[in-house]
């Protein structure tokens, strides 16, 4: 079965919740915000038209560090990997637990400077055809370097939300081939995908494929 490579973009919108000006308000809003909003601030950050923050990979941690100036909170939030959790509700509980712990530690509720409130957003993922088709596992060697970062995001990161088994699209597709591609599937399964920028993820995927399929890497 050929693999049709897709690309994607976001339509971003306000989540319909008031902004948070301080940590207490952040707690109150996280309780009520839609799941899509949590997903956006934890996972879709990498394909928005912004620069990657080199330190933190979710918006809550970035806001805690830059606006609340609370490095402790930022570090605790920054280490969360939403893909290690079973659901977005589990993610919500973990974020609330961290915020509540911090609220119990500080003497004064940290505030953001005026104009730097936390804006709650969500997005619709719009999917496009690229015309690129993988017919065999070996095609990954040639086509992975040509894929856009948003294609990598769609098939290797976002897929885990879309697919019931929480795996990436490439691995699911490789399951349709013989046993001898298992090392490739395992190699892809070992690639760290959340705490890296998309350009870095693409490099790691290329390296994993070349290692698992050395014959096509030298072609």
């Amino acid at each position: 079965m050929p693999f049709e490579v897709k690309d994607c973009t976001l339509i971003t919108r306000m989540a319909g919740i008031s902004t948070a000006m301080n940590l207490r308000e952040l707690q109150e809003r996280v309780i009520i915000c839609p799941e899509e909003c949590l997903f956006h601030h934890f996972s879709e950050t990498v394909i928005r038209p912004t620069f990657d923050d080199p330190e933190f990979h979710n918006d809550f941690a970035v806001w805690a560090r830059r606006q609340l100036r609370d490095r402790v909170l930022a570090e605790r939030l920054g280490i969360i990997n939403p893909y290690k959790l079973n659901s977005l509700e589990e993610l919500r509980l973990l974020v609330l637990d961290i915020i509540e712990e911090r609220l119990s530690e500080v003497h004064h509720i940290p505030w953001a400077p005026p104009g730097h409130d936390f804006q709650f957003m969500q997005a619709v993922t719009v999917v496009f055809d690229t015309g690129m088709v993988l017919k065999t596992p070996e095609d990954l060697c040639e086509l992975l370097p040509r894929m856009s970062h948003s294609s990598i995001y769609y098939h290797f990161v976002e897929a885990r939300r879309r697919c019931d088994d929480k795996r990436d699209d490439f691995s699911n597709w490789l399951d349709g081939f013989d046993e001898d591609v298992r090392p490739l599937t395992e190699a892809l399964g070992n690639v760290e995908f959340y705490f890296v920028a998309l350009w870095e993820l693409q490099k790691r995927l290329i390296r994993a494929v070349e290692k698992a399929l050395p014959e096509c890497a030298h072609e």
Partner: peptide, 20 residues
């Protein structure tokens, strides 16, 4: 973004929208 927004308003704002 204008086009996809119009498409979204026409089809409904689900999590995913196939442009093709």
């Amino acid at each position: 973004e204008y086009l996809t927004l119009m498409l979204g308003l026409r089809r409904g704002l689900a999590n995913h929208l196939m442009a093709d």
